[in-house]
Simulated scan of single mutants.
Amino acid sequence: MNYIAAIDAFHGMHTSNQFTAFMLDGKQAGNDLNCQRLLIQSLLLFPPEDRADKRLQQLQHNQMCSWLNKIQNASQKQLCVRLPDGPIEAFLPSMPAEFEQLSRFMSCSDQWLREQVQAVWNANPDLSCYMIISNEFIFEAMLRGLFSAAQQCGIESMSILLPLVSRCREVQQQNIFASQCALDYNIICDLGIEIATPRAIYFAAELAAHADVIVFNVDELCWLLYGKTKNTQTGNHSYHAFGLHETPFNEFDDIGIGTLLGVAIQRIRAQNPDIRLCASGKYVLTEKGKQFCQEIGIHSLIADIQQFSSAEHT
């Protein structure tokens, strides 16, 4: 399978900006991304009670338009869409300007908004629950926007990649909605699961029972295993204290990461021998990484799951 379009439809809405968008008589005005952010914030802070909520209809329409712009030239390719991975916290208002604009958008008081934000924090103390599955109506509206756009673009089959999975419940829940949406829009859809945390390695077999494809995000696995962020500049000497003779961030780490992948693949194969396995990131594209993936039975390599890219088959 060629993964060519792993796109985040909410890109640009995870951080606060100076908002210029408002809802005027139910119609959208101003910058589209800002409108969508305000709309999503209103849905999170005042959750919809059923599918008839007009805000959900507008979210679905906005998402459809966003996806049309992204996938309109992809009808002849095998499409893979990586769903957004932003946690709830990324969408909650925090700056005074955000509260001011959102209160105007929702026609409510600043104080009420702050109370609702606190209520969301209380309900999700660590805010680890991804926004897209925190409310089934929001998630369904987003998916229907995606599948509607795919249908209009003449796409007959596609893949959905669930990012940063940390619980089997997430996969089961999202799989149900994705399968139903695909059926409604007459699109053949398979499900991919991204394993990007060391924790997910240890219940990889359970995840494999619900997926057609497993994608190992090797870069994320490496950063989390050794406690490094993407933007951290760290020299080799810092790792000597941890018993490492060289940094694992210049070359594929066949000992640490290699062992994790070996454990995961062994468990996955025992559960689902026919599942397709992929690996993504710059480390697996090194000569050492390519050789390891070939020997361990990983079928495809993906240059960067965040961008349009073609899988390099091993």
Rank of each mutant, 00 (worst) to 15 (best):
A97H: 10
E140F: 02
A141M: 07
L56W: 09
S94V: 05
M95E: 13
P87M: 05
Y130Q: 12
M64N: 11
W67E: 11
L59K: 01
D53G: 03
D53N: 03
F137L: 13
R104H: 11
P84I: 14
V120D: 05
C65R: 00
E100T: 15
A97F: 08
I71D: 10
M131D: 12
Q76H: 02
M142P: 05
S134P: 05
P87Q: 02
V117A: 07
P84H: 05
G86K: 01
P96V: 10
L102H: 02
F139I: 01
K54Q: 12
P84K: 01
S94E: 14
S134V: 08
I71Q: 02
M64K: 12
Q118P: 06
E140G: 03
M64R: 11
N69Q: 14
F139Q: 01
A97K: 09
I71S: 04
Q58R: 03
L102K: 04
H61G: 09
E136Y: 06
L143V: 07
L56H: 08
Q57C: 08
A90M: 10
E115Q: 13
L92D: 05
L143R: 02
L127Q: 05
L59I: 15
Q57L: 12
C108W: 06
L92P: 04
R104Q: 14
Q116K: 14
D126T: 10
I132L: 11
N135G: 08
G86Q: 06
A52P: 00
Q118T: 12
E100K: 15
Y130T: 10
I71P: 03
N124K: 00
I88S: 00
Q72P: 00
A141Q: 06
E89L: 12
I88F: 00
S75M: 09
Q60P: 04
D53F: 09
S128H: 09
E136I: 09
A123G: 07
N122K: 03
S109I: 01
C129Y: 00
A52V: 08
E115T: 05
A119G: 04
R104A: 10
E140R: 08
E89I: 13
Q57E: 13
L143W: 11
V81I: 15
P87W: 07
Q57W: 02
E89P: 02
W121R: 13
R51E: 15
Q116R: 15
M106H: 00
W67N: 07
Q116T: 14
F139D: 03
D50L: 02
M95A: 15
A90F: 07
Q111Y: 06
R51M: 11
N62I: 05
L68C: 13
A119E: 10
W112S: 09
F99E: 15
M106I: 10
L56K: 09
D126R: 04
I133E: 14
I132M: 09
E100Y: 15
S75Y: 01
M95Y: 07
N73C: 04
S134A: 14
Q78Y: 01
D50S: 04
K54N: 11
E115K: 01
L79T: 10
A97M: 11
A123W: 00
W67F: 13
